[in-house]
Each structure stands twice: as structure tokens, then as C-alpha cells.
């Protein structure tokens, strides 16, 4: 009874922290576009706060640059449980065009912190982000919340 109540609450109130680990900014503004009245992320109970200390979902955009190697782990440890990590765009998965000779990136993100879901595209459309976050985030958070006990 308590578990199912917790599940409902966890599913309907998700706080997102957006971390730009060195991307080109394209994915970030698509997330800002998601906040707009047209897509209206908040009607699903998802709030983008940019505060890792109260986040349930870490949304990571960008290949990992020199400065983020340590900081990303620190942010991850400071996020309370249960938490899931979703990567946005192709940079965090593969490094994209930056992962070539001469580039100064340390992709993928999964080398540093565990990743639960990926949204491909450079950058993904807001509707694609919305679809994949909705299909992954609520369920994953609920199951993770049960596991921790």
C-alpha cells in the first residue's frame, strides 16, 4: 500500500537537473523549448530546476570536457537517491563530431557515472525528448525507489 502510494508520487513529480558537460548548447535550448506552453513539460509533473541537490533525473548534454571529469562525479554523488541519469543527444554517448583527433573531450559519459537511458539525435526534437523521457523516467524512478530499501 505504502509502496504503491510512493510509486504514484514519484511518478507524478519528477525534478530534473540539466547539466551541460561541454555541448554546443543545442540540446539545452531544446530543453528550454520543452518548457514552452506548446510542449508544456510541467503538465506531466516534470520540473526543470537545475539544482542537483533536489533532482531525480540528471539530464546530461555534451561530451565530457577536461573540467567536468571530476565535477560530474561530484554532482552525481550529491544527488539524492533514487536518481536516474538520462543523456541527451549523441555527444554524451559517443562524443559525436568532437571525438576526433585534436578534440579535448572524454566521451562517453558512462565512463564516469552510470547511465540509464539515452536519447539520440543532434539535437533531438523536443517531441522526441518528451517521448523518451516519459517512457523511461517515471517507471525507472519508481523501480529504483523500491530497490533502495
Amino acid at each position: 500500500m505504502l509502496d504503491s502510494l510512493k510509486d504514484v508520487i514519484r511518478k507524478s513529480s519528477i525534478h530534473v537537473c540539466l547539466i551541460n558537460t561541454g555541448g554546443c548548447n543545442g540540446c539545452d535550448i531544446e530543453v528550454v523549448a520543452l518548457l514552452s506552453p506548446r510542449y508544456d513539460l510541467e503538465q506531466y509533473g516534470i520540473y526543470v530546476h537545475n539544482n542537483p541537490r533536489e533532482a531525480d533525473v540528471l539530464l546530461i548534454t555534451g561530451p565530457v570536457t577536461e573540467q567536468w571529469k571530476e565535477n560530474l562525479r561530484r554532482i552525481y554523488t550529491k544527488t539524492p537517491e533514487p536518481k536516474i541519469v538520462v543523456t541527451l543527444g549523441s555527444c554524451p554517448v559517443s562524443g559525436d563530431v568532437f571525438n576526433q583527433e585534436g578534440g579535448c573531450v572524454y566521451a562517453p559519459v558512462s565512463d564516469f557515472i552510470p547511465v540509464d537511458a539515452e536519447v539520440p539525435g543532434c539535437p533531438p526534437r523536443p517531441s522526441e525528448i518528451l517521448e523518451s523521457i516519459l517512457s523511461v523516467a517515471p517507471g525507472a524512478i519508481a523501480t529504483k525507489g523500491r530497490q533502495r530499501k
Binding site: S90, S94, D96, P120, G121, C122
Partner: peptide, 8 residues
């Protein structure tokens, strides 16, 4: 084509 790298 690897979708996770493709930039479309």
C-alpha cells in the same frame, strides 16, 4: 548507421 553518433 549508428543512431547514437549520427548528427542527421
Amino acid at each position: 548507421i549508428d543512431n547514437s553518433i549520427c548528427i542527421r
